[in-house]
Design a protein around this nucleic acid. Structure first.
Lengths: 149, 149
DNA sequence: TTAATTAAAGATAAATTTGTCTTTTATTGA
DNA sequence: TCAATAAAAGACAAATTTATCTTTAATTAA
């Protein structure tokens, strides 16, 4: 569905949002640790998110990543997906036709139209705040439980 | 959503089904041409489909690919997807958690559960026959219209 | 103004997916 | 049996995605 980069980007954004609500900036090390992702790759993804104005970053001592309380409320999942994976997932043809539309539909066009519509609605409606609050309350998780190995 | 391989596999299966209904076997050259895909790569994908019993192949003079009329009716889209891309698309976690379940849900678990359910239902219900008949009737297309260039 | 800190940027590398080419095997018909 | 045909199999190559490493730039505090 989403690329690895996008999966990490969503998880990172949610984690940063949970910390920002407590007024805490987090460094890339913490982010990668808490969402169980490769640190340098995650840093690259953070650059995309900051360039797109989704996450704010601050260099230097005491710096790190954060999202303002207002931004957390307004940012929708689709903004993160769009910034990293583009719009192919909710716009492209299900079986890869360059030309696929109501007038020139592929064999699965109508079925996929429905699914893409639901996906798009979900991505458009879900805010970072909703997701972050679920993590804060302990209802949702951002990584696998630790096991002894 | 699906890999390129899977997109080609679905398109190829549908094209072969339309030809088989007329009692015509098709070679890999025709398949690639009609679905606008790279021939050698498509040949590889055909090997997966034949190994999985979705498409039948015959070597030698007059050989090629075909699907029996009974098979066309019984084969579901999910069999093609499963053979090529596996079950990740309708089973895996939306944001890539290894562990993601009702008891240990990721932040988008419930939203994705719904979407995956609809996708799974669609893949499970849609038969090759449905898709092929739409192409035969001219309602659906398997490639872009030819343009002069 | 210097040292420490932290993200940004850029170069590189590994892994995976996509795509190609060559050889082998099976089948048919002459 | 032999030649032609067509898929299968295997090796290889290009492109993309994922991941890493090093250097640079910005910021803070001493």
């Amino acid at each position: 569905m989403f690329s690895k980069a996008c999966e990490y980007g969503i998880r990172a954004s949610i984690f940063i949002a949970t910390k920002s609500s407590q007024g805490i900036r987090v460094g890339i090390k913490d982010v990668a640790k808490e969402i169980d992702s490769p640190e340098p790759f995650t840093a690259k993804i953070m650059q995309i998110l900051t360039k797109n104005g989704i996450i704010h970053s601050a260099k230097g001592v005491g710096g790190g990543f954060e999202v303002s309380n207002e931004a957390v409320k307004s940012i929708k999942l689709i903004q993160i997906v769009d910034a990293i994976d583009g719009d192919k997932i909710y716009k492209g043809c299900g079986i890869g036709l360059k030309q696929c539309s109501e007038d020139h539909p592929c064999p699965v066009h109508h079925e996929f139209k429905k699914i893409r519509g639901i996906l798009l609605e979900m991505l458009t409606k879900t805010t970072l705040e909703q997701l972050a609050s679920g993590v804060k309350s302990g209802d949702f998780y951002l990584k696998t439980l630790n096991t002894n190995h």
